Computed example of a mutant assay.
Amino acid sequence: MSILEVENLSISFNQYTDGLKQKNVNVISSLNVTLEEGEILAVVGASGSGKSLLAHAILGILPNNANISGTISYDGEILTAARQASLRGTEIALIPQSVNYLDPLMRVGNQVRNSVKVGDAVAAQRKVFERLRLKSGVENMYPFQLSGGMARRTLLSTAIVSGAKVIIADEPTPGLDPVVIKEALENFREFADNGCAVMLITHDIESALTIADKIAVFYAGTTVEIAPVENFNGDGEALRHPYSKALWRALPQNEFIPIPGSQPRPNNLPSGCLFAPRCPIATPECELAQPEMRELRNGRVRCIHAT
């Protein structure tokens, strides 16, 4: 069952140029994703493709110069700013990319305890710290005293104890050793198996494939494909979009074939299909309009040539 739906989300930012003139820079266009209860959706794509902005839009923490269109619904109701504020940290939890989200003036044990909504907060915090191999003395430390890996485990702890129905993990594993990465990923799988919906934003496709149910591929601020995890196999023949196939073949464990060209900048987007300038099967028709997302072979794709 769908618990969170993002439909035709577009985000732009007002920016000042020379002479105090303003311009509007579009960074996300017609983005669509759906989170299902009991499933993990991994969101992958190059830096600058809009992955973290999607998370911030869902939580309502974009800066004031952001312009948003489209709809975000949670549990069947539109997410207004007031509803986002009431659900943030309770029913929708973020494990942020930056450890700067930790309060520098509060001991980390207390920060985790503040996320406990039911039961003994101290016991819950100590149990999760033990589970994530954070020693007992860590609870009395301030964020500046933590290593990068310890800080990330602290952020992960807040989500584990929150009891949230939706967890958005934005690059949660950099800086962690392989054992802790494996345990963190297993925790996300456990969340989903207990009915939670998890969005895992990551560059690490290989790790995502070990726990995800579906993969959403982002490119230049939009979704180009959403596919079952089993489609990421072999030489990518089961994938639908040319970018998804090229991204899969570019991995070291596959053919390690680089994708010619580079992702366009938000202030210089091509007309029509955003991937067309780099696409080996592009035709003049691809330059006319950005394709709509459509259903295809138990997935979704934004490409007029996909079969």
Rank of each mutant, 00 (worst) to 15 (best):
T71E: 08
H56S: 03
T34C: 13
G70W: 04
L146K: 13
N268S: 13
S207N: 12
E237L: 06
G137K: 07
M141I: 11
F218G: 14
K51T: 05
V44M: 12
V116W: 08
L79N: 11
D177T: 10
G70V: 02
E186G: 09
E91G: 12
L20D: 15
M293F: 08
H305F: 13
I215S: 08
V108S: 04
R83L: 14
A282S: 02
A93F: 01
G50H: 00
L59P: 15
I160T: 06
L269A: 05
A216Y: 13
D204K: 01
V217G: 01
N267M: 13
L155Q: 08
N140K: 14
Q125V: 10
T223W: 10
I226F: 12
Y74M: 09
L134M: 08
A124T: 09
T202C: 00
N233F: 00
Q22P: 01
Q111F: 11
G45Y: 03
N298F: 12
V99K: 03
D235K: 11
L134A: 06
E285K: 07
S52C: 09
N231L: 01
N254F: 10
P242W: 01
T202A: 03
R278Q: 04
S47P: 14
C303R: 02
L102D: 06
L62M: 09
A238Y: 00
E7C: 08
S262A: 14
V122S: 09
A184T: 09
N140Y: 12
L155A: 12
E77Y: 09
I68D: 09
E5T: 10
A238L: 06
G175H: 01
R88K: 14
P264T: 04
F144E: 15
A85M: 12
W248F: 14
L134W: 06
T202V: 06
R126W: 03
G70C: 05
T173W: 00
A124S: 14
A123E: 14
N14H: 14
I205L: 15
G48C: 11
S52N: 02
G272M: 06
A159N: 07
K135L: 10
T154Q: 03
P174D: 03
P242V: 00
S157V: 02
N64K: 13
E171C: 04
G119I: 10
E287Q: 05
L239C: 05
I40C: 08
P96L: 09
V161G: 04
P252M: 04
I304T: 15
V43T: 15
L105C: 05
L288F: 10
K245S: 10
S73Y: 03
G48S: 11
K21Y: 10
K182P: 03
I95V: 15
V27M: 02
M150T: 08
L9A: 06
R113M: 12
T158Y: 03
Q125D: 14
S12N: 13
E130G: 14
V99Y: 01
F191I: 05
N32C: 14
F191C: 04
G195V: 07
R126P: 05
G175Q: 03
